[in-house]
Deep mutational scan, measured.
Amino acid sequence: MKTQEELTEIVRDHFSDMGEAATLYVQVYESSLESLVGGVIFEDGRHYTFVYENEDLVYE
């Protein structure tokens, strides 16, 4: 099982292909040891929320 830090790095790496991230945040109260819930805000103003669970990243 991966730590939240490892899950955060996986998510950060995925979003790095989409541009320069200004902020990546984790909603600790919705996350667990198995999943990471949060969002990313890019330098150009785009904002996505995400759920990373079971090696699957879903974002909108």
Rank of each mutant, 00 (worst) to 15 (best):
D56P: 03
G45A: 01
D17K: 15
S16F: 08
G45M: 03
G19L: 05
D44S: 01
S32N: 09
Q27K: 11
G45I: 04
G45T: 02
A21E: 08
M1A: 11
Y52A: 01
K2E: 02
R12I: 08
E6A: 07
E5L: 08
S16E: 06
V28L: 12
E53G: 05
L7E: 02
L57R: 01
E9A: 13
E5T: 07
R12T: 04
V28R: 07
Q4R: 09
A22Q: 10
D44F: 10
V11Y: 03
L7M: 07
F50D: 00
S35Y: 15
H47P: 00
F15M: 04
V51N: 03
D44V: 04
Q4D: 04
R12N: 04
I41E: 02
F15P: 02
E55R: 09
V11A: 01
G45W: 06
E53Q: 13
E20D: 10
L24M: 08
L57D: 02
D44C: 06
V37R: 13
E34A: 12
Y59R: 01
E30M: 11
R46T: 09
V37S: 10
S31F: 08
V26G: 01
E43V: 11
D44H: 00
T23R: 05
E30R: 03
E55P: 04
G39V: 14
V26R: 00
E53A: 13
S32L: 09
D44A: 07
I10E: 05
N54E: 04
T3Q: 03
V58M: 09
M1Y: 13
H47S: 05
N54T: 04
E34N: 14
D44I: 07
A22N: 09
L24R: 00
Q4T: 05
M18S: 04
F42I: 01
L33N: 13
Q27T: 15
L33I: 11
D56V: 15
M18F: 10
H47R: 04
R12P: 02
L7V: 05
E43Y: 07
V28F: 14
I41H: 05
L24G: 03
V40S: 01
Q27C: 15
I41D: 00
I10V: 06
A21C: 15
D13K: 15
V11R: 00
V51E: 02
S31I: 08
L33T: 14
Y59A: 03
G19T: 05
Y48T: 00
Y25Q: 05
E60H: 12
A22D: 07
G39P: 00
S16I: 09
I10L: 09
D56Y: 14
E60N: 08
M18N: 03
N54A: 07
E43L: 12
G38L: 11
V58L: 10
S31E: 12
V26T: 02
V28D: 07
E6K: 06
F50M: 00
Q4C: 15
K2H: 07
S31N: 06
E20V: 14
D56T: 15
A22E: 07
Y59V: 12
I41A: 02
E55F: 11
I10H: 05
G45Y: 05
E5D: 09
L7R: 01
V58P: 01
V26W: 06
G38D: 01
E20I: 14
S16W: 08
A21R: 08
K2N: 05
E9V: 09
T8M: 15
S31G: 09
V40M: 03
S35Q: 13
F42L: 07
D56R: 15
S32E: 11
E43A: 13
E43P: 11
T23E: 11
L24W: 10
Y25G: 03
M18G: 05
V40G: 01
E20R: 06
E30L: 12
T3D: 04
N54V: 05
L7T: 04
L57H: 03
L7A: 02
T49Q: 06
G19M: 07
A21T: 13
I10Q: 04
H47G: 03
Q4Y: 12
L7D: 01
D44T: 03
E43R: 10
M1W: 11
E34Y: 07
D44W: 09
S31Q: 12
L36I: 12
V11W: 04
H14C: 15
I41S: 03
E55M: 10
H14V: 09
V26D: 03
S31R: 04
E20W: 11
E43Q: 11
V40H: 00
G38Q: 03
E9I: 10
Y25A: 03
E20M: 13
M18D: 03
G19E: 03
I41C: 12
G45N: 02
L24S: 02
E20H: 12
T23Q: 10
E5N: 07
T8D: 04
L36Q: 01
E6P: 01
A22P: 12
E5H: 08
H14N: 04
V26L: 05
Y48M: 04
D13N: 14
S16H: 09
Y59G: 03
I41F: 10
R46C: 09
I10A: 05
Y29N: 03
A21M: 15
S35I: 15
I41L: 07
L36T: 04
Y29R: 00
R46K: 05
H47Y: 08
E34I: 09
R12Y: 07
E55W: 09
